[in-house]
């Protein structure tokens, strides 16, 4: 396994912040992020819409395995050099039920949490960048222009 593709919600601020954090960490495998509702995501994993990726995060390995929900988050931790031991701890039978409950709660309340923590989503940033007026071109006056 060399790459994990993570289908995330680009309209959710919390998910976008987690994406930035994950990308900043040293990892054992390459992490690739795609908005779950993008055409590229549907092309990569044709069965994605049946998985209800809008409810819980989906992770696809280049070897064909798919994880969702708590398992997908554990796989994200597994991919990181500094947090792989945490993935083993959270995957233990004693911790799995608690991890699943926490992940489900966060997934259900992610929009409210993002609003509460004032986290900007990738979609917000993209639309803000599209609406921003174009910067005026720099009018550099050459010294020679002043000589008449």
């Amino acid at each position: 396994m060399h790459t994990l593709t993570i289908f995330y919600d680009a309209r959710c601020g919390l998910c976008s912040q987690v994406r930035h954090w994950l990308l900043a960490q040293p990892a054992h495998v390459r992490l690739e992020f795609l908005p779950y509702d993008s055409p590229e995501a549907a092309r990569r994993l044709p069965g994605l819409r049946h998985l209800r990726a809008d409810r819980e995060i989906v992770v696809l390995a280049d070897s064909g395995e798919v994880w969702q929900g708590a398992g997908a988050w554990i796989m994200c931790l597994w991919a990181l050099r500094e947090y792989r031991s945490w993935s083993a701890r959270l995957a233990a039978p004693a911790m799995q039920a608690a991890a699943r409950r926490v992940v489900e709660w966060i997934s259900c309340h992610r929009v409210g949490l993002s609003r509460l923590l004032r986290m900007k989503s990738d979609a917000d940033l993209l639309s803000a960048a599209a609406q921003a007026p174009e910067a005026p071109a720099c009018a550099v006056r050459h010294d020679l222009d002043l000589i008449d």
Partner: peptide, 10 residues
């Protein structure tokens, strides 16, 4: 991977 996948695709 410490958790089994929910499904496998080609």
């Amino acid at each position: 991977p410490p958790v089994p996948p929910v499904l496998r695709v080609s």
